[in-house]
Write a protein that binds this DNA or RNA. Structure first.
Lengths: 230, 230
DNA sequence: GTTGGTTAATTAACTAGTTAGTTAGATTAT
DNA sequence: ATAATCTAACTAACTAGTTAATTAACCAAC
């Protein structure tokens, strides 16, 4: 988006892209840990080993920087997740691949789920200026794909007749929740919820949970309905 | 805690408990919508129709007020949820009662899930001073109860052999996520996710999801394992 | 039954410390 | 030179928390 012509065209002190990247990376952490309101621009600058004014050289203001962070995170997510859905396998395996890829992406970037959660919560009157863009650009395409696979699986009799509009968010909930609430887990159980064994355990639990809730099992006869009044 | 002797003992302008309650109520909304960092004490005072100094008359500081809000919300949750577990019915019905009560509590207080989520995310180094108290006082008792019921159901062959340490948080995730991410739903689908019909729909979907994932079905033969490496 | 003191409840106005954002200039590759 | 990259120092606005004064209920004494 910037260097469209011949060379990288470095400036004075030398690291234009590096500086920008460092700021973004530092901003990811700061925003994830403290939210937009709690994040401190000074802290971001310091973590990026950069003068604060440089933030405003590369980004209009705090809100814009926050938007860039969101775009960075969600575009990565979209990439990873849609790639996992590329294969030509059965709906059953596609769903498992999707969930696995989603989980691994989040597990590999423990800061992201908080960012996601935080952003999702900003809207209750006078909310986020980014949410609409994020939903249209990232969430909807993913949702469409997964939704389609669910319909295929249901039509093929492989899946129980679930409503994608509820089932897809439920998947996200199961994947994300563990990580965004890791601090609680840390206190509840007496172990580090981010330790590899524990994460693997959670992964298995999530896949098991979703499999059991979605896949039709061998010699099974169950009711067809998936909705009832309260 | 205050009037232990004879009379209510009102003060000057007259409404000590009312003022305190008004502040708490306003604080719930403000903290839920903006988080601790984003919440403005002036806004709370204004919403409570009270001078800002009164916040500091009743509560030591912002953090303490936030703690009071959390205690208020979580003690209510504990009450409702534990009451739902009181009955002498089968594990299956107890779980459904628990999930239903949890869901209804959240649905009836749409501000709570954000508060919960927000608090759960505060800890990543230098985190919340309240989290430990909340976990010990509210989460652990609830967890113990539900965990016990799960074990009973598993022993009775009613439930699949799930690990409560993962299954219980998964339940919470399913219940809470829809509400804390309602803004996303609002944009994704083209309807108001908080409309009664939609909430009822979600309720059914959650109960269906959990039932399918937990209960053993009629003539069914499935694998016994509930864990595998990634 | 009025007076005056005591105390809880409440407020207007203020203060000290932060913090997002700016400015004017420095540095250096080309 | 010149334009991109970068910085030290500054500012304007905001915000948590304080202070000192005010109001009115209650109670005891006269």
């Amino acid at each position: 988006m910037k260097t469209a012509s011949s060379k990288p065209r470095l400036g004075s002190r030398g690291q234009p892209e590096e500086s920008r990247a460092a700021i973004l990376k530092a901003a990811v952490r700061e925003f994830a840990e403290h939210g937009i309101a709690g994040a401190r621009t000074d802290a971001i600058a310091q973590a990026a080993h950069v003068n604060k004014a440089l933030l405003y050289y590369y980004f209009k203001d705090k809100e814009t920087l926050y938007g860039a962070v969101l775009d960075y995170v969600f575009s990565n997510l979209k990439l990873v997740v849609l790639q996992a859905l590329q294969s030509e396998s059965a709906p059953r395996d596609k769903v498992l691949a999707y969930v696995g890829a989603y989980f691994d992406f989040i597990a590999g970037n423990p800061l992201y789920p908080k960012l996601v959660q935080r952003e999702m919560m900003r809207a209750g009157r006078g909310g986020s200026p980014h949410l609409k863009h994020i939903v249209e650009e990232y969430f909807r395409p993913i949702y469409s794909e997964v939704s389609q696979i669910l319909h295929q699986g249901i039509a093929a009799g492989e899946f129980r007749p679930v409503d994608p509009l509820h089932f897809v968010p439920s998947i996200v909930a199961l994947v994300v929740f563990y990580f965004s609430t890791a601090p609680v887990m840390q206190i509840m159980a007496q172990f580090d919820p981010m330790a590899p064994e524990r994460v693997a355990e959670r992964r298995a639990a999530v896949l098991d949970f979703i499999s059991a809730a979605l896949f039709r099992h061998s010699g099974q006869r169950q009711k067809e309905n998936a909705s009832e009044g309260p």
